[in-house]
Design a protein around this nucleic acid. Structure first.
Lengths: 126, 126
DNA sequence: ACCTATATATAGACTTGCTATATATAGGGT
DNA sequence: ACCCTATATATAGCAAGTCTATATATAGGT
C-alpha cells in the first residue's frame, strides 16, 4: 500500500507571499536571509528553497510591494529588499483576509479535531 | 491607480480538498449539495463553482479518499459521495497538519495585526 | 588547491483552481 | 404545450504558484 498521495506539504500554498512580506515588516533583508528567517520563524516547518523564493521576490517587486537595492560593493553581492508603502498596506489587508479564512476553516474542521485528538493533545510548537 | 493585483481570493489554495472532505465527515452528499454546504458552512466566504468542484471530486475519488454511487433511478441523476476509511484518516492527518501551519502563520502575522487593528476590532463572522 | 557556505537566478514540469461551455431533467408559471 | 429557472454533472483551456534541477560566482577555512 504505497499510497502515492498528492502534496502532503502544501498548507502554505498561496501564503508564501504573506510570509515573505511579514518577515520584511521590521527589517530590510536580502534573499538568502529571508530564506533562513522563514525557516527560523516557523521552527523549521516552512523550508522554502532558493528556486521557490527568488521568483516570489521578483514577482513581489514587479507588483511594487517590495523594492530592492544591490549592496554597495562590499565583496558579497546582495540584493536588499524592503516593503513599499503599498506592500505594507497589502500585507495588512491580506493578513486580515487570511485570518478570516483560517477562522472559518478552523471552525469547519472542528468536528475532525473533536473526533481524533491525535498523538498529543498539546504539541503547540511552531 | 487601478492596481491589477494578483489573486485576492486565494487563501484557500490547497485547502479545498480539506473542506470537501470535512463536509463529508458526517453525511453522504452529492456534488451539487457539497457545493452549497461549502457556501453555507463558510457563510458565503467560500463559493466554489461547479467547474472547480467536480474535478476535485474526481481527483479525490481517483485517490480513493472518497467513493461514489449513482442514485438508484429516482428521476434526478445524482452521484452520492462518502468518505473511505483512508479518506477519513487523511482528513484527520491533513487537518492537524493544517492547524500546525495556521498556528505558525498566525504567530508570524501577529505584529501585523498589532500594528493595524483594521476597520473593526471584532468582525468575527463566518 | 579544494571544499563548503553564501548568494542569486532561470527553465521546465506539475498541481490547483478559474472561466467558459455543454448536456440534461424537474417543476412552476403562462 | 412552451418557456424559464433551478438542479445536476462534466470537460476543455487557461493562469498562477510551487517544486526540482541546474547554473553561476565568491568568501573563507583547511
Amino acid at each position: 500500500m504505497t499510497d502515492k498521495v498528492r502534496n502532503e506539504t502544501d498548507p502554505l500554498r498561496g501564503n508564501l507571499d504573506l510570509m515573505v512580506l511579514s518577515v520584511l515588516t521590521e527589517e530590510r533583508l536580502y534573499g538568502y536571509l529571508i530564506q533562513r528567517r522563514l525557516t527560523e520563524a516557523s521552527s523549521g516547518l516552512v523550508n522554502v528553497q532558493a528556486g521557490t523564493l527568488y521568483p516570489i521576490l521578483h514577482r513581489l517587486e514587479a507588483d511594487k510591494l517590495i523594492r530592492s537595492r544591490w549592496d554597495a560593493g562590499t565583496g558579497r553581492r546582495r540584493k536588499w529588499y524592503e516593503l513599499t508603502a503599498s506592500g505594507r498596506k497589502q500585507l495588512s489587508q491580506r493578513a486580515h483576509q487570511w485570518q478570516q479564512y483560517a477562522d472559518c476553516l478552523r471552525e469547519m474542521l472542528a468536528p475532525v479535531f473533536k473526533a481524533a485528538p491525535k498523538t498529543m493533545p498539546d504539541a503547540t510548537d511552531c
